[in-house]
């Protein structure tokens, strides 16, 4: 039961939870608890969507859905970690792992909260295409919210230690200031007014450099999030079926054909009556 308490702490007091991750407090216990609780929630939702076909499909989806998020995390973790430490991040691999697990946990809880709605539509509407698209929408929405919270959390953690920032009342173009350090004479010639380089407080230059690094890390994070979405959707396509098409016998896997986006587009097209 303690595992769910950790999950509840994350949901109720996210800033404190993230701060504990930053300070490396009980990382292993947090990892295990978040893994256990999120996998359970994913498994329940997976079983519901799989039950639209058969009980074998329900078991299969209950294993596949947690694996989809877990394997995506494992595939994308090294990219995030190594790119971030390249730009002065002080966090360890374990801390990044837990940070990603917070995303996974948030998505799992949101999916779990959608479970009654999915179950209702599963019972009341027997339309495979509609059910498929409804779930794509739910997955997209929960994924977006989870990733958004992860993005905010990463910014909160990256922003920590930039306490000097508010002390800067005058705006300094960060790229210019950094360049001034490298080529002071050339820059000074281009600057008609203001103080000399010697007057420039060391702290300001340090903060400007830090700002540059921070901006780079934010750009990298945005790039990584796109990568995460691409890997996730492709892996989902590779691991299908999650739903099980009507009238077909149980399949553990299907041959790789087409891609995720073209299939969603085709289903939507058919549902709207254009085919």
């Amino acid at each position: 039961m303690n595992h769910f308490a950790v999950m509840l702490t994350l949901l109720r007091d996210r800033p404190t939870f993230l701060d504990e991750i930053r300070r490396n407090i009980k990382i292993e216990r947090k990892s295990f608890s978040l893994l256990v609780s999120s996998c359970l929630f994913f498994a329940i939702y997976g079983a519901i969507i799989g039950s639209s076909s058969s009980w074998l499909q329900a078991i299969s989806s209950a294993i596949k859905l947690p694996a989809l998020y877990l394997i995506t995390l494992v595939i994308c973790l090294p990219t995030l970690f190594f790119f971030d430490i390249l730009f002065s991040s002080k966090l360890g691999l374990g801390q990044y792992f837990v940070l990603l697990l917070t995303t996974m946990s948030t998505i799992s809880v949101l999916l779990f909260s959608f479970a009654p709605i999915t179950l209702f539509f599963l019972i009341s509407i027997h339309d495979y295409g509609f059910f498929l698209l409804l779930n794509v929408a739910i997955f997209a929405l929960t994924g977006f919210v989870g990733v958004r919270l992860f993005y905010n959390g990463m910014q909160q953690i990256s922003n920590h230690g930039q306490s000097l920032k508010p002390a800067l009342s005058e705006p300094i173009p960060s790229a210019e200031t950094t360049a001034m350090l490298d080529a002071p004479t050339e820059r000074a010639a281009k600057r008609p007014i203001m103080a000399t380089d010697a007057d420039l407080p060391v702290e300001r230059v340090a903060v400007a450099k830090k700002d540059d690094l921070y901006a780079t890390r934010v750009r990298l994070l945005k790039f990584w999030l796109v990568l995460y979405a691409l890997v996730g959707s492709q892996l989902g396509w590779t691991l299908r079926p999650f739903f099980g098409a009507p009238g077909e016998t149980f399949q553990l896997f299907r041959a790789i054909e087409g891609n995720f986006y073209s299939t969603v587009f085709r289903t939507l097209w058919t549902l709207l009556g254009f085919n």
Binding site: L35, V36, C39, A43, I63, K64, P66, A67, L68, L70, I71, V74, L235, T238, L239, Q251, L252, F253, R254, I256
Partner: peptide
């Protein structure tokens, strides 16, 4: 054990699918 199975089974499936001759 559950977590290991959840990770290993689908990961093996992804690898197995790329092996020529592996059918359903």
């Amino acid at each position: 054990l559950g977590l290991i199975v959840i990770f290993c089974l689908p990961a093996s499936l992804v690898i197995a699918k790329s092996i020529p001759g592996f059918t359903d």
